[in-house]
């Protein structure tokens, strides 16, 4: 008969131990110590956590990050669904649209950074010149607003296609019979969307929301390459902030910040997951 489930999981878990569990435990270990280069680490309990939570720089980065991720979701999810709805359902057009949507997703993060620097750099880019025509002095390395909005647009440009692809997959799985039934009942286009399409899309949308939440929370290369996190701290994402601390060998602080960071992402994902699952149950 069939072998035991753990036997199947063993290879995956063995690799995950190497790539996730051991590094995570090392981070947790750092977070409980004061670490100075050249001397023995000293056990300090939760002191690093207290320091991180009281640090205005960390709180600032965290707040910016949460606002950023929520904005990303608020724009990319509806926009992605709209694109998916507009896509041809079958025929050659559907294949072309899928490949076109796939291409931006395959561009490495730092190439995305380079593309947008070429695009927005004062002196060589299209954007500053175009905006100069309408009298707006666009400069990502001087104006905080320009930098923030640009990082936001980069994310929307890069990742809305992912949401569209997922939503499209979900749309394809809805049997035509549902739409015919809605038509017979005389449902309006809005009602059909609200009561047929949206509920059927829910599982795929949960996946899209969670993926975008997790990944936008980790945003790193885009602000790094665009302005190095500036001007000021305007585009210093949480990842950028933590990586800087780690690179300057404040390992205890960085470790504690990382653990807090990870649990905030997990908590937010969990809240979104619960809320979206609940919404489906209530409707039923």
């Amino acid at each position: 008969m069939k072998p035991h489930p753990w036997l199947f999981l063993l290879p995956a878990l063995a690799i995950m131990a190497m790539s996730a569990f051991i590094p995570l435990m090392t981070v947790v270990n750092y977070s409980l110590h004061y670490i100075f280069v050249g001397s023995e680490p000293e056990y300090v309990g939760l002191a690093n956590y207290v320091e991180v939570l009281q640090d205005p720089a960390f709180r600032g980065a965290l707040l910016r990050q949460i606002v950023f991720s929520l904005l990303v979701l608020a724009v990319e999810i509806p926009f992605g669904i709209a694109i998916a709805l507009a896509m041809p359902r079958k025929g050659w057009g559907s294949g072309v649209a899928l490949v076109l949507l796939g291409i931006p997703l395959l561009i490495p993060y730092n190439v995305v950074g380079i593309i947008w620097r070429l695009f927005t750099q004062t002196g060589i880019g299209v954007v500053p010149r175009a905006l100069a025509l309408i009298g707006y002095n666009y400069n990502v390395s001087l104006h905080q607003f320009d930098a923030v909005i640009t990082v936001f647009l980069i994310d929307v440009w890069h990742w809305t296609p992912l949401v569209a692809l997922l939503a499209y997959a979900g749309l394809q799985s809805i049997p035509d019979a549902f739409y015919r039934a809605a038509q017979i009942d005389g449902a309006s286009a809005v009602a059909t969307f609200r009561y047929v399409t949206l509920p059927k899309l829910r599982p795929v949308l949960i996946l899209a929301v969670l993926l975008r939440l997790m990944d936008s929370f980790k945003i790193y290369s885009e602000p790094l390459l665009l302005t190095g996190g500036g001007p000021g701290n305007a585009t210093t994402s949480l990842s950028l902030f933590v990586a800087r601390k780690a690179e300057s060998f404040e390992l205890g602080y960085a470790g504690a910040a990382s653990v807090i960071y990870l649990y905030i992402v997990i908590l937010l994902s969990f809240i979104f997951f619960q809320a979206m699952t609940r919404a489906g149950e209530v409707r039923r």
């Binding site: 051991i22 995570l24 929370f217 653990v259």
Partner: peptide, 23 residues
């Protein structure tokens, strides 16, 4: 276990730089 696996998808890579190098 399934949820634990997914949480690793959420882990910020930036946080893991030093442990990865060390391990």
């Amino acid at each position: 276990l399934f949820f634990w696996l997914l949480t690793n998808r959420m882990a910020p890579a930036a946080a893991f730089i030093v442990p990865f190098i060390e391990v």
